[in-house]
């Protein structure tokens, strides 16, 4: 996928919150994965980081303890592993691979019904994030949202009431949105989706299954 094909980007509010470090871990993972694929949002993130640097430069300072510099030098001399550049080369960008423990073939899928599979990734509890596998032509049941839902397409595409979302695209849904995402007929769709509140399913069967699926 190339960055020019991406039509749906992150909002300024999300980029600012990510830059400031105020997003739940699950959302940060989706944001970091999108930025790995999207030069436009990466550039905008750099801009928000630059604002953070300017704030740090202009804010007050609080005196360090008298031996702070010496203590830091001994920290440095006791050594730390040299960090190297990270680049994945697989379907999943490195931040996502870090959570999966590998690329697509390392995902431990669990069926959620109607051919759809999911894999919940371990993050802090203030929001949750999962990989979704939607076979071509299949749908995620009609649902609304109690909080924010970020959905990033990694492979294939899905269509809902609002638009079509292809590789690299991100959909941002909130309380006032009800939708039924359907995977494009061309290929199976793989998405990374984060929510900070349980979804509201309209149908009875998905509602009954909800506690077991942790959606």
């Amino acid at each position: 996928m190339t960055t020019e094909d991406i039509k749906h980007d992150l909002t300024d509010e999300l980029l600012l919150a990510y830059s400031a470090g105020n997003l739940p871990e699950a959302f940060s993972l989706v944001v970091a994965t999108h930025i790995s694929l999207c030069d436009e949002c990466r550039a905008r993130l750099v801009s928000f980081d630059t604002v953070g640097g300017a704030m740090l430069e202009s804010c007050e300072s609080i005196e360090m303890s008298a031996d702070a510099l010496d203590a830091t030098m001994s920290r440095i001399m006791s050594g730390a592993p040299q960090a190297a550049a990270r680049k994945s080369g697989g379907l999943f960008p490195t931040p996502l691979q870090d959570y999966v423990g590998g690329d697509l073939d390392a995902v431990k899928w669990r069926p959620v019904g109607m051919g759809v599979k999911q894999a919940i990734l371990p993050t802090s509890a203030d929001a949750s994030v999962r990989l979704l596998y939607i076979p071509a032509g299949c749908a995620v049941p009609d649902h609304g949202h109690r909080g924010m839902e970020l959905t990033l397409v990694l492979q294939g595409a899905f269509v809902d009431e609002t638009d079509r979302f292809g590789p690299g695209d991100i959909e941002i849904a909130n309380e006032d949105m009800q939708h039924t995402p359907v995977a494009d007929i061309g290929a199976d769709c793989i998405c990374l989706a984060a929510t900070d509140a349980p979804l509201k399913f309209r149908g009875l069967v998905p509602r009954l299954a909800q506690p077991f699926l942790k959606i």
Binding site: G21, P24, E25, S28, L29, V31, A32, T33, I35, S36, R42, L45, A85, R86, K87, S88, P93, T94, P95, D98, Y99, T123, S124
Partner: peptide, 17 residues
């Protein structure tokens, strides 16, 4: 700050080529 105060990991974007 995220690590020490919020006790969370910080997913970082992939490095540029």
């Amino acid at each position: 700050k995220i690590d020490a105060l919020r006790k969370q990991k910080r997913p970082e974007p992939e490095d540029l080529p």
